[in-house]
Design a protein around this nucleic acid. Structure first.
Lengths: 208, 208
DNA sequence: GTCTATATCGGGATAGAC
DNA sequence: GTCTATCCCGATATAGAC
């Protein structure tokens, strides 16, 4: 079932990714992972010390990638709009090219035990902090509307993250189209403004 | 541990809500639920036929509430902006007043078996369809920017749903403040527009 | 490096007394 | 309506042969 060019270690991890994302960590039996990889359950222990180790390896690898790519974007770009667009694009690209892996990251944090949990959550917090830095800087420079930085960052991340739950490669929309739609929405919002009233208007309370 | 005014049936459900949301459905042992409710595991079966039944009852009850409230909003309001604001408010109000329950709905759909799964997913699809109707109508009437209705609906729902994962009652922000921030963001977006250029501009491709 | 066989445990669920 | 005792199964993980 698995391509032959991969090592058994990789085969096992790929099988774990598939089953963890499909049934969840606790509901995916090691025996099934083994069967998908074409070996017996006991043989997994030659490559990994535990089931938990599979989960940790999946999460760590891809969180690291997400973080390091965003870090590079922050160094390369300095205009808040560029940063925002590139951050959204980065998030969506990874969440679509590695759908299953990021779906696991976003749904199985609870399944991590002790140390591992603390470490992965710290990585996620680092990511959050970088997004918040983009927003804070953009607001200070008057490019973004003033607004609650933390809440806004959660909102943007939630938005782009969820892509991994409905996106189908080769489906109706290309990755780039999804990126464009989301960037449009985050930056401009839904509402069309037919005439240009005093822009202070939006600073007032939303509810009349 | 549980208030005395509730029936044991309710006690058990409340315990299940707490543990399912904290550890996940599969990781929450029935014995622990029983202990939280102050009885033995076997006694649960006098009130519920199975562990699965607890999950189904939690999900069905609150999805029904979410749907019926949105349905009423669609009947009461006809202006797209009112509808959007009320839909967001409804979603966020329920997701904050019943944090744990909706967190379960949003993370444990996979844990539903057979029939139940189909039924709950159908309820969710009904909800999606109502949100999409608000968007479609608003775009047709020129109140919203033209954009992909499905993707936009997923985005809004993802945004408002995630509130249940970080919101703390009695925390820094009130429910109404969160609603205002989110409505602001969905309707207006992040980017401040200092001068009012030709509004057709936004219809063009985002990437130069 | 993979196998078969098995240890060990904890899970959901049931039986039947009170 | 709740209890104790227990069934039965499937889970992760280990031992040791090949």
């Amino acid at each position: 079932m698995q391509p032959e060019g991969r090592s058994m270690r990789e085969n096992i991890l790929a099988a774990a990714v598939q089953l963890f994302s499909e049934y969840g960590y606790h509901a995916a039996p090691l025996r099934d992972i083994a069967r998908l990889a074409g070996i017996q359950a006991a043989s997994i222990y030659h490559h990994y010390p535990s089931k938990q180790a599979l989960l940790v390896e999946i999460m760590e690898k891809h969180m690291q990638q997400l973080n390091s790519k965003l870090e590079r974007i922050l160094h390369e770009y300095h205009d808040p709009l560029d940063r925002l667009r590139e951050a959204i694009a980065n998030h969506i690209r990874l969440h679509t090219s590695n759908k299953a892996e990021f779906f696991i990251i976003d749904t199985e944090l609870r399944a991590l035990e002790g140390e591992h949990r603390t470490r992965i959550i710290a990585m996620r917090d680092t990511y959050d902090a970088m997004i918040q830095e983009i927003l804070r800087d953009g607001m200070e420079r008057g490019v973004f509307h003033p607004s609650d930085v933390k809440v806004t960052s959660y909102a943007i991340i939630a938005l782009c993250t969820q892509v991994s739950s409905w996106f189908r490669p080769g489906g109706r929309l290309s990755v780039q189209q999804v990126i464009d739609i989301y960037y449009q929405m985050v930056s401009q919002g839904l509402v069309r403004v037919p005439e240009h009233k005093d822009e202070q208007k939006r600073e007032e309370s939303v509810r009349t």
